[in-house]
Nucleic acid binder design. Structure first.
Lengths: 321, 321
DNA sequence: TTGAAAGCGCTACCAG
DNA sequence: CTGGTAGCGCTTTCAA
């Protein structure tokens, strides 16, 4: 019984006599033998893991996403090597190099850095699919930030709002920039003044959203509706609104968050399905692993407006508009 | 310039002349050479990854935990191979075998199955540290569920509550069983009847907690205080309480959740710090990797009562008690 | 300071 | 149906 025969049994190859097969299998379980998949990958040249690199796993959006990727990867017998960038370009680069060193089969990345040209040399053997944010020249799985935002703002306007604030205008996130752009577009289209005071620059984080909201409501002409640029901002706006007993102010948040439906009124959110995004990214990655020469593609995942009450509030009577 | 010299440069070994070193480094960057860490691990026998296996990454507790582990692992130059059990014993076993096949250096596991004896053979080379739930014969990093719960229930009683409900009594989770045990203990100690109607068995999930709460409040003698067995239950109780406008009912939830502080009243939670748990687990794992023969240890992480209002509510006047 | 050779555990290729 | 041999990319040991 040679080493090669064992290999054949382990890989379920056909040309092994039933008797030998049984004998090998018995030894395997007696010895608790476990095949070393790294050595297999080293020899065969086909890695058995994919790398996933996101901002931070503490973000519910990304944690759901990673969960979906893992489930899908398991079906293909792939392991998931997880890493995070912490929003830091240098760290992103380090992590990318580490993943390269692990010879992962491909990488799913939420990009932070602007320039990913240094990935070029590896892309033929190790494809990269961007998620959440697109990058020129790479495949990406994203949602239409601008369009979804336009829809939300149009909704406000159709209900009579004209003082509409945008909270969380954070220039560091390309997604947020696009959402802000959508917001601007719609106001202009409806001949509503784009008042900078209504969309002050600020970090798209819970705390700053909270203070920005408080500030907005103390303005001489406060907003009657607020659009939150991302879930963290949304939660901050909620905290402020509830703290000030101003739940009469309309609110739509980009990105769902837990308990959004439990609040009164329920918080209307633009939902992006992390599960679909994750699965689409991994499937695209699999395609690229099979045919690396495919031209980069942008895969759009539909968003859904989760109407729960806060987004459907009308402006108070007598408010200008 | 031999392959060995390159190896020396890559590993920052001393015995290389500066000139050679420079020359090698230049070639490395010109060729975009990246060391294959799998091959290195194969040869050296020292794996460069740890495995993390939790229920589901979608749970904020675990996602924070995994994030903390990853940060800490990065400091040691370790990669994190992530996997989830989905609460399923068979899947747990499969995943564990997969991680073994990857020859990870050690595993951090939130155990689901009762019997982990099949890990025995590997433990000498691949230590295992349990998190969240303890397992006989294994190292574990946990919180004192019973004690923390006792403290919360004592708090209710000291404020005059006698009708105290326990929502989310789910026999599948050993942690929840211990919390329920702590609850029982305190009631008995204070000669309060342990009414089964006040702690009905149910899944420790948001939806069932919501319906159980609704049911409890419709009882002839409804509870004046509720203890939620875990964050998901806590959110369910919140949804019910807010839906029924019964925010006068006191509530303490085991495990913090987002927006808990934004609600009115803020939800008092027993906070368990996922960051500390994760770091402690990885550090213990590192110890075990160095000295595998150490006797199993139980590491207790302190909890913190986050008083935000809901846990400090008094029973209504005239309520019996 | 540098290099040659062996071998980690596996599979591809070719023989028997 | 079964087995030997070579070699994946690296490090270790010993020698120059």
């Amino acid at each position: 019984m040679s080493i090669k025969t064992v290999s054949r049994v382990v890989n379920n190859e056909v040309s092994v006599s039933p008797a030998t097969r049984t004998r090998v299998k018995r030894s395997i379980s007696e010895l608790d033998y476990v095949l070393d998949t790294r050595a297999r990958a080293l020899k065969s040249g086909v890695p058995d893991a994919v790398g996933v690199l996101v901002d931070t796993i503490a973000d519910p959006f990304f944690s759901s996403l990673v969960g979906a990727i893992e489930d899908r990867a398991l079906e293909d017998g792939l392991s998931v090597i997880f890493a995070s960038t912490g929003f830091d370009s240098d760290r992103e680069r380090d992590q990318l190099l580490r993943l390269t060193g692990q010879r992962v089969r491909g990488i799913i990345l939420a990009p932070v850095a602007q320039d990913h040209s240094y990935l070029g040399r590896y892309r033929s053997t190790m494809p990269v699919v961007m998620i959440d944010r697109r990058t020129e020249g790479f495949d990406s799985v994203v949602v239409d930030d601008e369009k979804a935002t336009r829809g939300a703002i149009e909704g406000f306007i159709s209900r009579g709002h004209t003082r509409i604030a945008f909270v969380g205008r954070d220039e560091r996130f390309s997604t947020v920039i696009q959402r802000a752009h959508g917001y601007d577009q719609v106001l202009i289209k409806h001949n509503i003044e784009v008042d900078p005071a209504m969309s002050p620059p600020s970090a798209a984080e819970t705390d700053s959203a909270k203070s920005v909201t408080t500030m907005l409501l103390s303005l001489p002409q406060p907003p009657t509706a607020i659009f939150a640029a991302n879930p963290r901002s949304g939660m901050g706006v909620v905290e402020a609104l509830h703290g000030l007993n101003r739940t009469d102010v309309a609110l739509i948040s980009f990105g769902d968050f837990s308990l959004a439906g439990a609040l009164k009124p329920g918080v209307t959110c633009i939902g992006q399905d992390p599960h679909r995004i994750g699965v689409a990214a991994l499937e695209r990655l699999t395609q690229l692993m099979d045919s690396p020469e495919t031209a980069p593609e942008e895969i759009l995942i539909e968003t859904e407006l989760l109407q729960r009450g806060s987004g459907e509030l009308l402006p108070p009577r007598g408010s200008k508009g």
